[in-house]
Design a protein around this nucleic acid. Sequence first.
DNA 1: CGGGATCGTCAACCCGGTTGACCATCCCGG
DNA 2: CCGGGATGGTCAACCGGGTTGACGATCCCG
Lengths: 152, 152
Amino acid sequence: MTEPVPLARLFAIAYRQLVDGLHERLAERGWTDVRPAFGFLLLALRAGPASLGDLPGVLGTSKQAVSKLVDRMVAAGYVERVPDPGDGRAKQVRLSSRGQALLAEVERIWVELEAAWEDAIGGARLAGLRSDLEQVLRSAHGGALPPVRTVA
Amino acid sequence: MTEPVPLARLFAIAYRQLVDGLHERLAERGWTDVRPAFGFLLLALRAGPASLGDLPGVLGTSKQAVSKLVDRMVAAGYVERVPDPGDGRAKQVRLSSRGQALLAEVERIWVELEAAWEDAIGGARLAGLRSDLEQVLRSAHGGALPPVRTVA
DNA sequence: CGGGATCGTCAACCCGGTTGACCATCCCGG
DNA sequence: CCGGGATGGTCAACCGGGTTGACGATCCCG
């Protein structure tokens, strides 16, 4: 064991495990048309509507990718595009009521899944894991939590 | 902060950060045709050649996806397909010498990147993070480290 | 020896991302 | 007051990596 499994792979496994668990539970509760990518936009709109132009910086993807993601989520009825009142070019994106319900369900499931992790390693170590991880990510990004994919 | 950022997102960010760092450094050192997906196969072949049929269980994808990945890596000169001596249907996959050199470079870079993390949170907390993470992943999978994507 | 199981590939498709081109709108300077 | 960048957003074409279904080749056992 001179070279243990790379940290990156542990993170990949952990991520998949949580996301798979999320969608499994969502499907069980009737949310069958939720794509994994939806979660990022959902979370970004948690604090309120956002201008489409601001989202690439938050999500860490191109504006075209954001546009396509919004398209899908509009088609699924989770968000709405509304024209910006003060700028004829701009549009805003906001959660529909169905989107808000989904967000609430997702947050409930995160709590459940993290509770399962607590059962495995205990609350103290889980809290430490979270805070250590947040610290190292923030330290590499000037104190703020970076987007998933560092924006180009 | 009733509901902090989900753990899953922290893992996604951490994963991207490490993988982006890896490929940045690889490119700096002349490895310009390495795709992110290569790493998984590289690691799987670290201990020696493997039968193509065994890889889906290790990588957590379908055998067709494995075949396509091997195609790409063969085209890039990192692995070789050799017929299984004892079974006319089966083929084995093994690292070429260039693949071994790449693997060595990748492992060197992981060490460098993890050293940077140590600078941020210290060696003890990094070690704790790793072992906690490994423990919770193993506990959900009967003691063994699961594949990235749980096999169907 | 023949029929089912297994190994691997091919083909078609999907999702989520990219880049480049483009139109509509804003806004500022001559 | 207008004309020309700069900006917001979409469309189109493409790519990587995954899926499922179908299929030929080979093995193995009754």
